[in-house]
Amino acid sequence: MYSGRGNTGRGKFFLPFLFVVVALLLAVSVPVGCGQGTGTSADAAKQGKSTAAATIQIRGSDSEVNLVQRLAELFMEDHPGVQIAVTGGGSGTGIAALIDGTIDIANSSRPMKEEEINQARRNGIEPVPVRFAVDGVAVIVNESNPVETLSVAEIGAIFRGDITNWREVGGEDSPIGIYGRQSNSGTYVFFMETVLQGDYTPQMRNMGGNADIVEAVTTDKTGIGYVAIGYVTDGGSVRPGIKPVKVSRNPGETSYTPIELENITSGKYPITRPLYQFLNGRPEGAVKDFIMFELSDRGQKIVLEQGFYPITDEDRKFNENSLK
């Protein structure tokens, strides 16, 4: 190695070194140069539909990510040629990626907005919605909190910042610690539009995901937060440290818990919503097989096992309509 110490030797050493530097520069500049690079994998997946091997890219809702991951695992067991990658990031992130054409399926816990649909169409993408599960958004408090029930109006007032002390809703005399999601979350938007019908208080802590809210409310005795129902239970029972409050539609009316199937299907629990997936155009090949698997009896059984609820007849009609 040290045989050539003269000038010529150094020259020999420098040339390979230069190659390394050039290679590094190229490696850095290429991904920067073409930001659309990720688009190719989704395109390839579409072209690969005729063969058995296919890759499906799914991104979006944090509320749906665990459920869809489980569905994907079981689907891949039966379809060895199909690779499904499921990532979170929030409904808004998934929809943005669908609009940019970098994914095949966007998970979203809220419907797409008019301007998002228009933007997708301008990019040559036709969003097709599918409802594959039902969620009862749970309002959770710390286990030790004596408050058992709240009305939709009270919850709205708490998250708007109009009610700031637990005493005002029948609890102890202590301030309320409010935990919500970030604006890229479908749950954030859904909750704002259906429950608050106004702006969130700026005092609310904006957490990155459902699990973060569960974690925060577990440690904060004065905390309140909202999460997808799948994050409230673990293997059929409520996670230790938190408690989903029973919710009534109007003050003084009977309140219902979101952890019973009957309350959701009957519509008695007031804060329910369908969970969506948005596809690019009518599904074909592997994407279609996966969607059909999700909507099948087996798929819906998994939905229930993961703590969410199966789709209703109305949702089935909705799907028939959009897939036809």
Binding site: G89, G90, S91, G92, T93, I95, A96, I99, D100, E115, E116, Q119, Q182, S183, N184, N206
Partner: peptide, 9 residues
């Protein structure tokens, strides 16, 4: 970081 991912370009 929170908002860039979802914002319409």
């Amino acid at each position: 970081a929170i908002e860039m991912g979802e914002v319409p370009v």
